[in-house]
């Protein structure tokens, strides 16, 4: 496992290649459908949120408010990333994002943006809500909770040893494309 620690510099990210297993530690921000659409339409990030050399995590976590007003994360698996395909390239370009965590992979626009701007797609294990919640050491803040609702809000999380696999690297390679092509050929032989 390759450790990936905050701040996620361009050099760190460019050194990764498809198939690498990484262990991510540091600060990440969640963002899913509402956040992506909002930023794509020209919305500004709230004060305190910076994605520069940062990671955006496609996740709608389950958060329990504690008596002292803080939050505890009880489930934090990835959500399907392809829904953000129309927006992701622009957010990588405009906000200096270095990593996108999600599941299911993304398409050609994101692949091109990763190559051009130095970003990677990090595939987390879909459905592993409990293991991934254990990696969330602290819920540091929440933004847009009112506007977008809890699952769609931007959650600032401190994670430790969060496991993921690089499936789109900054060199134009996509594991998703490779596996699709190989499996198509294997199936054609068996029909």
């Amino acid at each position: 496992m390759i450790p990936l620690t905050f701040p996620f510099t361009e050099a760190q990210v460019r050194a990764l290649k498809v198939g690498d297993e990484v262990s991510i530690s540091g600060i990440v921000f969640t963002g899913r459908d509402a956040v992506h659409k909002y930023l794509h339409e020209g919305g500004a990030l709230p004060p305190g949120v910076s994605l520069r050399d940062g990671i955006i995590y496609h996740c709608g976590p389950v958060m329990m408010k504690q008596p002292d007003g803080t939050y505890k994360c009880t489930a934090a698996g990835p959500t399907t990333s392809i829904r953000e395909e129309p927006y992701q390239w622009q957010i990588i370009r405009d906000f200096g994002v270095r990593g996108v965590i999600g599941k299911g992979g993304m398409g050609d626009k994101t692949l091109a943006a990763c190559k051009e701007h130095g970003c990677v797609y990090l595939h987390a294990i879909g459905g592993a809500a409990q293991v991934l919640a254990e990696c969330v050491k602290q819920v540091r803040n929440v933004y847009f909770a009112e506007e977008f609702g809890s699952p769609e809000a931007i959650w600032e999380l401190e994670i430790e040893n969060f496991p993921a696999v690089v499936t789109i690297d900054a060199h134009g390679h996509s594991l998703h494309k490779e596996v699709l092509a190989a499996s198509q050929a294997a199936l054609a032989e068996r029909l």
Partner: peptide, 11 residues
């Protein structure tokens, strides 16, 4: 299982 798709589609 001969297609090489694998868990999560990782191969």
């Amino acid at each position: 299982n001969e297609l090489g798709i694998g868990p999560m589609g990782f191969g």
